[in-house]
Amino acid sequence: MKHKVCFIGTEITPSNDSSFVGGHVNTVVALSKGLSKLGWKIHIVTTPSRFLKNANFKFPWAEFHLIKPKGSYSSLEYNINFLIGAVRAIENINRCEELDLIHGHSGYFSTAIIPAIAKKKLSIPALFSLYCPARLFPSPVLGDKYGIKLLSESLTRIIAVTTNVKKSLLSCGVKSNKIELIPLCFDDEVFNNRSLSDDSSEPDSLFRKILFVGNADRTKGIDIFLKAAKLILQKYPNVRFIITLHEPYEVIQNIRALASRLLGSAVRIEGVVRNMAKLMASVDIIVVPFRSTEGISDIPLVILEAMAIGKPVIATEVGGVTEVIRDRENGLLVKPDDVHDLANAIITLLADPGVMNGISKNAILSAKCFQSTEVSRKLNALYLKIIDNKD
């Protein structure tokens, strides 16, 4: 008989075409596929995506249970609605199928309230994966550390996706024997250097292309990217810049106007890309100029996906990024909020194809331990250990 686990998290949105809607979201989807292949039945309690309006929630590897909270995303009303709806959904699933485990996923520890309540009501082991340095809510609040410590005691295990996240949990007083270190993962069926290749048939295939993936939040550093791009064009006029944003249409239009003023026809702005893997394969360099990873995946997933395809990544020295990128070996590291440092790093790669090729080869090797196949095995081993009461 199959073991059964229920994942909980907002906007966990699957796609057939590697659409990117967020780091931990794509990780949860990849994990559910991997665990399904290992014999698990997966239930996912989630909310509709703000960006993929017509997402298909019917997949053979998971059963989705949609909660439609009232209020705007991240508002108090929205979160309370999701909490109540998610706990009810878990109770209904368990009534029909008797779950073995409950597993919450988020960048904020407050979401752990859902698996903690479900554990208390149903006496089922509950885990929580934390994807960025520990805090209860998007904005720091008085008693953050105490709240995290108290909530952690109601959970069976807490999974930290990086050593940096683990350290932040320990600094809140979370017991070390409660914490497991299991990294983020990417879907290695989609993101790999075997099935993808550059598409020279694209209209701008004669140009060197540099990609930014993210949103308009200041933390993501799109302003730094645009300013660095302007400097690059002065030295390399044959470079083209591609920016993909999971943002509402009006926000994309505003960014498009700003980018056009700075870069003219050398920039292309897109919304949610329906085939991120194909787009990544078509560019030369991927830039991740985050100012911080707080409230975001501690290792931006786009870094791992790009490395798996064999694309050189330039990223800032923030959060858990330095746990995966070794400067000038499998990527380039730059200082956050530094336009000139970023521009110089891009020039380093454009000027020396040998350096670029060496980094690409090393990146492919470094990404292997983040493959969903590998990470799913680690999570499966932890699940079975907990179920068998051998922990």
Results as ranks from 00 to 15, higher is better:
Gly104Asp: 01
Val213Tyr: 08
Leu35Asp: 01
Ser49Glu: 10
Asn344Val: 05
Ser152Asp: 03
Thr162Gly: 04
Glu317Asp: 12
Val190Asp: 06
Ser152Met: 04
Val272Ser: 00
Lys167Val: 08
Ile182Gly: 02
Ile117Phe: 06
Pro140Met: 12
Tyr249Glu: 15
Ala228Glu: 08
Asn92Arg: 09
Glu11Asp: 01
Ser205Ile: 07
Asp17Gln: 03
Leu211Gln: 03
Asp188His: 06
Val45Pro: 06
Glu11Arg: 09
Lys2Met: 12
Cys369Arg: 10
Lys4Pro: 00
Val45Gln: 06
Thr219Lys: 10
Arg95Met: 09
Leu52Pro: 04
Val355Thr: 15
Arg135Asn: 10
Leu196Met: 01
Lys235Asp: 02
Thr10His: 13
Pro336Trp: 06
Ala343Ile: 07
Ala363Leu: 06
Leu279Asp: 00
Tyr383Gly: 03
Ile117Gln: 04
Val375Thr: 08
Pro237Glu: 01
Gly214Ile: 10
Ser75Tyr: 09
Pro125Glu: 02
Leu99Met: 05
Ser366Trp: 10
Leu130Asn: 03
Leu136Arg: 07
Val267Arg: 11
Lys178Arg: 15
Ser74Asn: 14
Asn16Ser: 14
Lys227Phe: 08
Ile347Arg: 12
Phe137Met: 07
Val87Asp: 12
Asn192Met: 05
Glu329Ser: 12
Asp284Val: 01
Thr47Trp: 10
Glu98Lys: 10
Ser205Gln: 07
Ile387Pro: 01
Val251Lys: 13
Ile296Val: 13
Asp298Arg: 05
Leu169Met: 09
Ile296Gly: 10
Ala257Arg: 07
Phe64Ser: 03
Leu245Ala: 02
Ile114Tyr: 05
Val25Trp: 05
Ser72His: 10
Asn357Thr: 13
Ser168Trp: 11
Gly214Val: 08
Ala160Leu: 01
Thr47Asp: 02
Ala89Thr: 09
Asn238Ile: 08
Cys6Met: 06
Pro300Ser: 04
Leu83Val: 14
Leu231Gln: 11
Ser110Trp: 10
Ser36Asp: 09
Asn215Cys: 00
Gly39His: 08
Val287His: 11
Ser36Pro: 02
Leu83Ala: 13
Ile12Ser: 04
Ile224Gly: 00
Pro133Gly: 01
Arg274Met: 13
Arg256Leu: 00
Pro125Val: 13
Ser366Val: 04
Ser32Phe: 09
Leu350Gln: 02
Gly320Ala: 02
Lys37Tyr: 06
Glu189Gln: 13
Phe241Thr: 03
Pro133Gln: 12
Tyr146Asn: 05
Asp198Pro: 13
Ala367Gln: 09
Leu196His: 03
Arg261Ala: 13
Ile148His: 03
Thr46Ile: 08
Asn380Pro: 00
Lys53Gln: 14
Val161Pro: 05
Phe57Ile: 11
Leu211Ala: 00
Val5Trp: 06
Ala315Lys: 09
Thr163Asn: 15
Glu270Trp: 12
Gly354Ala: 03
Ala351Gln: 15
Ala228Val: 11
Glu91Ile: 14
Arg95Glu: 15
Thr162Tyr: 11
Pro300Tyr: 07
Leu304Ala: 06
Phe241Asn: 00
Asp337Asn: 15
Lys361Met: 14
Met1Ala: 10
Pro115Phe: 07
